[in-house]
């Protein structure tokens, strides 16, 4: 699956981390971990900035994190208008691993510090993504 399948609308067609969308289709939200030095990356990277290695493995995000911050956008940029309003947020999984995504549509009353998880998401038009849900 090409990376143009990622998100509501992708701006990137090719990346060495394209497996990310295949994993999403399999129901997994994964980052990469450097085989040489163990540095963890989310979103995933093909190259390790810590030790310059290109040997990377995939790792699944922890099941539970905390909601670090969020915002509800009442207006959307060009190409996303039909979705507004939607809420975007940052999840902190600890140990330096965080994720940025939208909250699930049915996510009510978000509060900083609450327990949350991330899960894959398939749109009707075949795009794949991930979203934040209550843990």
């Amino acid at each position: 699956m090409g990376f143009d399948k990622f998100g509501r609308k992708s701006f990137t067609s090719f990346t060495k981390t394209g497996k990310f969308v295949d994993l999403l289709a399999e129901g997994k939200v994964e980052g990469t971990v450097c085989k040489q030095c163990g540095a963890k990356y989310f979103p995933p990277r093909a190259d390790c900035a810590a030790c310059l290695s290109k040997e990377m493995d995939w790792f699944e995000l922890p099941k539970k994190g905390t909601l670090e911050t969020f915002t509800t956008a009442m207006y959307a940029p060009f190409g996303f208008e039909a979705d507004a309003p939607y809420t975007m947020a940052v999840v902190d999984f600890g140990a330096g691993v965080k994720a940025f995504a939208r909250l699930a549509k049915d996510f009510s009353d978000p509060k900083i510090g609450m327990d949350v998880t991330v899960r894959p998401l398939k749109y009707d038009d075949g795009q794949v993504s991930f979203e934040i849900a209550k843990a």
Binding site: F3, F6, G7, R8, K9, S10, F11, T12, T15, P43, E68, T69, F70, T71, A73, Y75, A76, P77, G79, F80, D83, A84, Y86, M88, A89, V90, F100, A101, R102, I112, S129
Partner: peptide, 25 residues
Amino acid sequence: RGGDIQWEAPFGTMMPAYYALYAQA
């Protein structure tokens, strides 16, 4: 798209929302 176009723009990001993440916290 002054943010990360590979990993963030696909969620529909824009400048006020980015700064709002800081403001909320």
